[in-house]
Amino acid sequence: MLIKKPADVASSEITPKRAYLSRRTFMAGAAAAGASLLAGRKLLEMGSPAQVVEAGAKLSTVKGPFGTDEKLTPYKDVTTYNNFYEFSTDKDGPAALAKDFRTRPWQVKVEGLVQKPRTFDIDDILKLAPLEERVYRHRCVEGWSMVIPWVGYPLSSLLKQVDPLGKAKYVEFTTILDPKQMPGQRARILDWPYIEGLRLDEAMHPLAILCVGLYGEALPNQDGAPVRIVVPWKYGFKSAKSLVKIRLVEQQPINTWNQAAPSEYGFYSNVNPQVDHPRWSQKMERRIDGSGFFASIKKIPTRPFNGYGDQVAQLYAGMDLRKYF
């Protein structure tokens, strides 16, 4: 496997953030490896457990692999331009409507074809493996893209905890169903709850992460708090948010967008400039990186597997990616 050189400077360091100093102090106290453990404990000391790791709380991270030196999308854009239909179909809707979304208490059931099914408390998830900063490109099926410093660890770290059985071929992810808190779920725009799926080998790939934060802090609610997946070589909708259930199954799951419009959104949905969406081209993308209005006029070419072909192309060897789009 090819491990690219990570970015020299952690994005959290070059990004001006509020309460920056406190984070510095915080980081000073944590050794690089195993920092998350320490961090969890330290956070618990700092305040009531109900608040400490909710949206915006600082997380201590180590630098992860697969970095990129592309310009980061500003924090403001990552947190105000969101596709999160559970709250709203307007891009600026989730930021406001998810403000009071409760992410504690929170549990994630991991079940299905596994040796040791288990329900994880969110605070256990945060401590399961060292939290890494993973700077990934994020390509939306709509034709825009971002570069986001996620915080998380390989999804495989979680899946190994439950010992998948040999029969398990796919992993199904379910987002919370809570129309009281999620106004978008009161309309049948999609068939709630939101379901996504990956092949088991995709889910076990080191690029696929279980994500609990971005920009060095706990996930903002509108970005899928408290826990989501990030699968950077696929269109953004594959990276399911606010997870409550992960099931290992034998049959290919029916993911929500595929069910809604099978000719437009496939199960795989790997980023592929050669396969257009039936209603728009996927050859180019508009990068949202805070470079200003005129710079954003120029689109950039979309790369196969969102530029992660070296890492993931072999997963699809021999497959017709036009058929399995």
Binding site: T73, K76, D77, T80, Y81, K91, D92, W144, R286, I288, G292, F293, S296, I297
Partner: peptide, 13 residues
């Protein structure tokens, strides 16, 4: 709004 960079993350959209 454009002059004040206030068109959101994706001004062209």
């Amino acid at each position: 709004k454009a002059a004040n960079a206030n068109l959101g993350a994706n001004p062209i959209e």
